[in-house]
Simulated assay, not measured.
Amino acid sequence: MTRRQLARHTGWFGAAVVLTISGGEVISHIASDRDSTSAPTAAGALPADPATLRFVQISDSHIGFKGPANTDVTGSFDRAIDQINTLSFRPDFVMHTGDLTHLSTSAQFDQVKQMMTGLRTDRVFTVPGEHDSVGDQGRAYRAAFAEGTEGEGWYSFDTHGVHFIALVNTLSLEKLGHLGADQIDFVRKDVAGLSSDTPIVLFSHIPLFAMFPKWGWSTDDALQVLSLLKRFASVTALNGHVHQLFTRVEGNVTFHSATTTAYPLPKPGTAPAPTPQVLPAGQLQSALGIRTVAYQKSETSLAITDLRLT
């Protein structure tokens, strides 16, 4: 990505951005209504191919939230699920990158778990947000969603030649996200036997880069994990938490922050704190959305499409 392309992406807070690959070049445009119901069709977009990996990222559903920023987060999450189920392809999996619930009660976890059983996919993965560990250090979350994981809920898996690592950086919080020595050691052992041409995708709730540390939008020991991945040609980190779109490239790593299905947060530094924002009537859905991701083995990058909630 050139400096000019990067500058364009970093200016597109709150807009849906389509990234496609053509001849090894990243091509971008603001998503239109057609993107919400079909795969990208611009020249150079990834073609329909059963060998192509396709998955969906959703984030920050905040089931249980009550406030004027969104008076019906359950309805918004239902619409997101419906939108996933009407995509032109069946996702290989769906990943929820945290803050599934707002107050981490058993009833809220039961509700979001039941809602996600309606997703048209074979596998659903999650990582926890800080709202999923309110008052209990994540015990209720792990009871509901962390079966078969390691430590406090981290894990990895492989599909279509891509290696995925799901990280937990919302426990042991002070100001910033934190991974901890045990999880860093897990990553070290996890990638030790992988070829350097294996694409790596990281999932976390809080960004793994310094997006806005003043608001806690960073992870204090992320560099220790990223240093373990320097030998890999393609590393993509997908996070939630910030409730808005943002893309950043540092070395071999491309970071993509996702939007939310619940409510928007202010742009970094434009408010005293990251509190839920009330938008003018009729504008909420334009700030909410889902993300589809595609990968072909012949490419070195992922094609990422951010879709507004319909």
Rank of each mutant, 00 (worst) to 15 (best):
Q283G: 00
G129T: 05
L302I: 07
R8L: 14
H205E: 02
K230H: 14
S257N: 15
K66R: 13
Q57G: 05
D220M: 09
K175V: 09
D110K: 04
T126Y: 15
G151Y: 05
S234H: 00
G289F: 00
D92A: 15
R308Q: 13
K297I: 01
V201N: 03
R90L: 12
G98F: 00
A45C: 00
Q5R: 00
F125S: 07
E299S: 14
I206H: 10
K66F: 03
N85L: 13
H96W: 04
A140W: 00
S32P: 02
Q114A: 13
T236D: 01
D33W: 06
D72Q: 11
W12Y: 13
H205W: 01
D72C: 12
A210N: 15
R139Y: 07
T101P: 10
I58H: 08
T198N: 06
L103D: 15
V253H: 05
R308M: 10
L173S: 07
F157L: 07
M95H: 09
R8E: 11
A69H: 03
E147M: 01
G23C: 02
I81H: 03
P199S: 11
S59D: 02
S234A: 14
R123Q: 15
R139G: 06
I21M: 14
G23D: 12
R188L: 02
Q283K: 12
S76D: 01
A144C: 11
Q224Y: 08
H256M: 10
L309D: 01
L167M: 10
T254G: 04
G216T: 05
P50I: 09
L309M: 09
H241Q: 11
L245H: 02
G282R: 10
K214R: 12
L279N: 06
H241P: 09
G135T: 06
S133A: 15
V201K: 04
G289L: 01
L226F: 06
V293T: 09
Q296P: 00
Q114G: 01
K175T: 15
R188W: 04
F255Y: 15
M1F: 06
L238T: 04
E299H: 14
D220S: 14
V162H: 06
D60P: 12
Q224I: 04
Y141D: 08
V18P: 02
G64Q: 03
A281H: 02
L307N: 06
A48H: 11
H29L: 03
S196I: 01
Q111I: 00
S286Q: 14
P274E: 09
D60V: 05
T74C: 10
S286A: 13
D136E: 12
R79T: 15
V26D: 11
L194C: 03
S32L: 07
A7Y: 06
H62V: 08
P274M: 08
L19D: 12
T149H: 09
I21P: 00
F186N: 05
E250Y: 08
V134A: 02
V112R: 03
E174H: 11
T198G: 11
L302T: 05
S28E: 11
Q108L: 05
Y263D: 00
A287G: 07
R90T: 15
S106M: 02
A16D: 12
A42W: 14
I21C: 10
A7V: 03
T126V: 15
R291V: 06
